[in-house]
Design a protein around this nucleic acid. Structure first.
Lengths: 156, 156
DNA sequence: GTGGTGGCAGGAGTATATTCGGAGAAAATT
DNA sequence: AATTTTCTCCGAATATACTCCTGCCACCAC
């Protein structure tokens, strides 16, 4: 619940380790931060209970799912009602091709990051799942040549 | 190494479970896909060895790191030499504020997804870490109002 | 049929995770 | 300064999971 308990150097070290490798045995985590396994376990449990450690996810090779390349849609809407936008985003992020949806300020309203098999797939996605919606006024597509992601949050 | 061994329904079920929760004990995964723990363990090992299951990462609450909001930079470069771009992306994704960098086709060349403390932080990031570079001709900033991400790859 | 292969279940042994109680240090209170 | 409270740690005991091995069955090729 409350994310604002003060974290010390050891907590941040644990968080960094688990962001890099969620499967590292507690015993080894403990060794890396110079704690006994039980003390380390208590800290991790506390971090989970307080909501700071939210979840852990395995990453798979998209190729195993037939993903050929990634793309982005830059979308403009004609209305900006909060409810409509929220519903649209939730719906879209549920599509198997959608990796993320971002609502932003500026010329474009929404950016969708996509994973598709091929060009035909991208085309049908654009026309059948997106353009169809009345409140979308414009979609621009871009091909993703490269995507680098940092999976660990470092202190700012 | 080779990601192209054919996966059956059970493999995909395992992958989906672990993408949703990398920490689920093997025993429970096995129960969910109707396998014995040993058989399930063998499959997971095979998926790891073949490179399909790449890694697992814990997700933390950015607030614990003092993140106030997210933003995006839309960046234009004056040159597009592969080496320069690659170096730039690697350098940038190493910054603690950068969540991802995307190289795309279209008007903008690169999109950087950022996490910052506040406006001053965003400003100094833009001017000191980005604009300084000679080969960057233009940066547009957008504020991220909402970001939804799917952490499980579903069959296309 | 026969031999070979691959995936599965089950069990034994080992390693790890989890829980609990108590010790010790630091901070707060009197 | 002494006492109380709080907090975090460690170590031992228990529970649980992992790992490896064996044998079984089904499928395929010959």
């Amino acid at each position: 619940m409350n994310s604002y308990a003060q974290l010390d150097r050891t907590d941040f070290a644990i968080l960094e380790i688990l962001q890099n490798n969620a499967l590292l045995p507690n015993k080894q985590v403990a060794a890396e931060v110079n704690l006994s396994p039980s003390a380390c376990h208590e800290r991790i449990k506390r971090l989970k209970d307080s909501g700071i450690l939210k979840s852990s996810h395995a990453v798979v090779d998209p190729k195993a799912y037939g993903v050929g390349f990634e793309a982005m849609f830059f979308i403009q809407l004609d209305r900006h009602e909060a409810l409509l936008v929220e519903e649209f985003m939730q719906e879209v992020v549920g599509l198997p091709e959608v990796k993320s949806v971002t609502l932003i300020s500026g010329v474009y309203d929404i950016i969708a990051h996509l994973r598709v098999r091929d060009i035909d797939h991208l085309k049908s996605l654009a026309f059948e799942k997106f353009t169809k919606r009345a409140y979308i006024t414009k979609i621009e597509s871009s091909i993703v040549y490269d995507f680098k992601e940092s999976r660990v949050q470092k202190p700012l």
